[in-house]
Design a binder for these strands. Structure first.
Length: 593
DNA sequence: GAGTTTGAAACT
DNA sequence: CAGTTTCAAACTC
């Protein structure tokens, strides 16, 4: 990777063809005895809101004094600079954020830090374009650019356009990195000046119309994500059926916003249909959705799963008849009238789904089962379980300590080893605390983004982080304020030391209890599903006879939950030790989780 | 992997 | 705003 130095004041569009000999180093001024320049540089740096890759000496860390010289947490503090370095060999516990990270993130003072950078940001190393392992182990394509002339500071560069630093790209003369944040900032400003929406998702949720405008028929068709290209494409030769086309790439239909020629990316297009025909269809669909998600080209609406998209589309149909701009009324009508659909193979499941009355409202099977009070009850129950687990653990711990006291007298030689262990425990403690008191962290912002990295491990730029920092701060403040068994500044180190184990025990118990509840919930859902299926079969001998009121077919009335559904928060029956096999996915939110 | 095609972005 | 150029990804061979 070629990395060039660049004056921070250089305009984005006027870069020298070759990199400068050295880049602007905010620290150099300090050392060269120019405090004024240093102050200016510091101000600039602060304005740029770059996150400091270092620990502040004044940062409060609740560890033993003798442990401070240990430089262990340092690598974890620099996710942006070395996002792919497989460090953490010292800590098997890899769940972010660490104690120090929490402090850094929760303390405003720790964010902009134009002081000495302890570790020089390393230029992203070129890596072959390959699969990138996500946290769940699913290999996903990591997007990396190959820019040569744009310095990765123009929208040509996908990384820049996505608002992320280049990391591991094959680009040359890259300025889209921490080292050149000033130049990058200028480029962002210049880009925004040209187009204030330059960094917004290109695919919006039908900005110039309602969603149903570009909704298409479900029958035997590829089901695109809902959305529209805000600007529309201008394709001429690709027929909007190649990835040159931004609409196609985002897996959406061309809309009235497009000015494309000879467009084939519309509802009912034979070419489009042929393109997705065959076994490749799903693969391509998923790949496109993934690409779109990776590219950040689409908004959250576009990130819906295919199933969600399907539901959305179907339900949208209930909103009214839509006519695509491409004028495919005959095709649409044909399908709406339930005429045979000339599709087979992998599309059959869609066809079958489409044979179900076209106007269906989807309701989660558990919608009548899970009530607000149930959730409250569950929370209470888990709190009780947690408390009991802590008590039980304390009892066991006391017994253990009595035993170990006798043995300790003969094991003084192992003291140093124990110190290290204590240190690790102390470091891990806040993570455990975070887990027990703030599981919402993962849900709200995603554990992978907490430390300033995207899910694929790529560093996010300060601009991107700035959009999230408030949320992060709130999250961490919340979690630090959350229910803890130990005062935040306790000096009882022995007590602190045992906390991770207590938390682990509590977490275990809580999760087990929660699992039991989920099992019951699943059982309830299945019962309800079966009931629904049975009554549906009895009451509706043929699907065409299903009465549709206002275009909505409502499922048969389901008796009250009290009579039908076992209470979720009752003691677990003895035969529930095995997780029930869910043969069909539960609709609604649960399937997402 | 090199060369070509393509369309968005940038520029005039 | 339209035409042209630049650019990098997609595509082809």
């Amino acid at each position: 990777m070629e990395q060039g130095g660049q004056s921070a004041a250089a305009p984005a569009g006027d870069f020298p063809p070759k990199k400068l000999a050295r880049q602007l180093d905010f620290t150099s001024a300090t050392y060269s005895g120019n405090p004024a320049l240093a102050a200016t540089a510091a101000a600039v740096s602060r304005a740029l809101q770059t996150r400091p890759p270092q620990i502040q000496p004044q940062t409060t860390i609740h560890v033993q004094p003798q442990q401070q010289p240990q430089p262990k947490p340092l690598p974890q503090l620099q996710p942006k600079l070395q996002p792919v370095v497989p460090q953490q060999n010292h800590l098997p516990h890899v769940r972010p954020p660490t104690l120090v990270q929490q402090h850094l993130l929760s303390q405003p003072i720790a964010r902009p830090m134009p002081t000495v950078v302890t570790m020089k940001p390393e230029s992203p190393k070129p890596r072959p374009r390959s699969m990138h392992e996500m946290k769940d182990g699913t290999p996903t394509k990591k997007k990396c650019c190959n820019c040569r002339h744009s310095r990765c500071l123009k929208l040509y560069c996908e990384c820049f356009a996505s608002g992320v630093y280049c990391d591991g790209c094959n680009c040359t003369n890259c300025f889209n990195n921490v080292e050149n944040e000033a130049a990058r900032r200028d480029a962002v400003d210049a880009t925004l000046e040209r187009n204030p929406d330059a960094f917004r998702p290109k695919i919006g949720n039908s900005p110039h119309g309602t969603i149903r405008d570009n909704v298409q028929e479900a029958v035997g068709e590829l089901l695109p994500l809902v959305g529209k290209h805000n600007k529309g494409c201008h394709c001429k030769k690709s027929g909007c059926l190649k990835k040159y086309c931004e609409c196609f790439q985002a897996n959406i239909l061309c809309s009235e916003n497009c000015k494309c020629m000879d467009c084939k990316n519309f509802d009912g297009s034979e070419e489009r249909r042929a393109l997705y025909h065959g076994d490749q269809r799903n693969t391509m669909y998923m790949q496109q959705a993934a690409n779109a998600a990776i590219n950040g080209a689409i908004g959250h609406a576009g990130l819906m799963s295919p199933s969600n998209s399907r539901k959305r589309k179907t339900s949208d149909l209930a909103l009214g008849q839509t006519i695509h701009r491409m004028g495919l009324v005959p095709v649409a009508n044909q399908q709406r009238n339930g005429l045979p659909i000339p599709h087979s193979g992998p599309l059959n499941h869609l066809t079958a789904a489409a044979m179900i009355p076209s106007k269906v409202t989807y309701r989660p099977l558990l919608s009548d089962i899970v009530q607000n009070e149930d959730v409250k009850e569950l929370c209470k129950l888990l709190v009780v379980v947690s408390g009991e687990a802590a008590k039980a653990f304390a009892g066991r711990k006391a017994q253990k300590e009595k035993q170990s006291e006798k043995e300790d007298q003969t094991e003084s030689s192992l003291a140093s080893t124990k110190d290290n262990k204590e240190e690790d425990s102390a470091i891990q403690k806040p993570s455990a605390d975070d887990r027990s008191s703030g599981t919402h962290v993962d849900e709200a912002s995603g554990s992978d983004t907490v430390d300033g990295q995207k899910a694929d491990g790529r560093p996010m730029s300060p601009s991107t982080l700035a959009l999230m920092c408030d949320e992060e701060d709130a999250v961490f403040m919340e979690s630090s304020r959350g229910p803890t068994l130990v005062p935040p500044h306790t000096s009882n180190f022995a007590f602190v030391e045992s906390m991770p184990e207590v938390y682990a025990e509590q977490e275990k118990c809580v999760l087990m209890e929660f699992r039991e509840c989920l099992r019951k919930l699943v059982t309830c859902g299945r019962m309800k599903e079966e009931r629904f299926a049975t009554s549906f079969r009895v009451e509706t001998p043929s699907q065409q006879d299903i009465p549709a009121t206002n275009g909505v077919v409502k499922p048969p009335a389901i008796p009250s939950k009290a009579a039908q559904v076992p209470p979720i928060l009752r003691p677990t029956p003895s035969n529930s030790t095995k997780l029930p096999v869910v043969t069909s996915p539960l609709p609604g939110h649960l399937d997402k989780k």
